[in-house]
């Protein structure tokens, strides 16, 4: 199913290897097959966009990769270690030290300032940058001591990105990072993600239903109805500034 063109351009090490991944939710009496056998590799340093309509299984996939959800069948390995049979404590540790998350609704702690929201992560990480460095990477040096309520949506999302990358994670998983933003602000956020990917070499997976964003990816993975329908490598990556929607 994975075509030749699905190979990454910059063939780095395999970060995630996904084999025959299935996920079935029981919704009352009805079983929902969110993933119906997904096979996939993600490589270090690459930026991948997962495209698909609502209910295609892309969030489920990302949640399993991020250690937030468990699979019904199949295997996921992260740098050779199997995630699919990890227990609660191991998954927490995995999230704590290896993965950065960015969500559609930012999920900042309202009682903490931008700097402190980043410090939430740097305090418990093994090899973090300082909150100031992280916020500088997303261009928020001026807004260090502002509370979420004092920041615009785009700024809040950039704080969330700073928080996610401040631990120097291996992977950055972004679920609709621009979903709650207008296109102009969205592009600023994507520029931040692109910059992190380039400068830190963090493997980045971005979920979106916005096909226009696919242009900035190394590879674009299409999901539909719980299956990968297409994996396409972009011959030429666009910079976020060139994107339009």
């Amino acid at each position: 199913m994975i075509g030749k063109e699905g190979e990454p351009n910059n063939s780095g090490e395999v970060v995630f290897r996904v084999r025959d991944l299935t996920k079935i939710y029981a919704m009352g009496e009805v079983e929902v097959h969110a993933l119906r056998g997904v096979n996939l590799e993600l490589y270090s340093g690459e930026l991948v966009v997962l495209l698909g309509p609502s209910g295609s299984g892309k969030s489920t996939l990302l949640n399993i990769l991020g250690g937030l959800d468990t699979a019904t069948g199949g295997d996921v390995t992260y740098r050779g270690k199997t995630l699919t049979n990890a227990d609660e404590r191991e998954l927490t540790e995995y999230r704590r030290y290896h993965v950065g998350f960015v969500f559609q609704f930012y999920n900042l702690i309202p009682s903490l300032t931008a700097r402190e929201n980043v410090a939430v992560v740097t305090e418990i990480a093994q090899n973090p940058m300082t909150p100031e460095e992280a916020l500088q990477l997303v261009g928020l040096t001026e807004r260090l001591d502002h509370f979420p309520a004092q920041l615009s949506g785009g700024e809040q999302q950039r704080v969330a990105i700073a928080r996610a990358i401040s631990k120097n994670p291996e992977v950055l998983l972004c679920d609709e990072p621009t979903g709650a933003l207008d296109s102009k602000t969205g592009i600023v956020v994507l520029e931040a993600l692109d910059r992190i990917n380039r400068e830190l070499g963090t493997a980045t997976a971005i979920i979106t239903h916005n096909a226009d964003i696919a242009g900035m990816a190394d590879r674009v993975i299409h999901l539909s109805n719980g299956r990968i329908t297409e994996i396409k490598a972009n011959a030429v990556k666009k910079s976020p500034g060139e994107l339009q929607w």
């Binding site: 404590r89 995995y94 999230r95 704590r96 030290y97 993965v99 999920n107 309202p110 992560v121 418990i124």
Partner: peptide, 16 residues
Amino acid sequence: SRELSSLRVLGYTRGE
């Protein structure tokens, strides 16, 4: 709960 879940996602343990 939202805030606490967010922290759990960020790798905070149940105890924390």
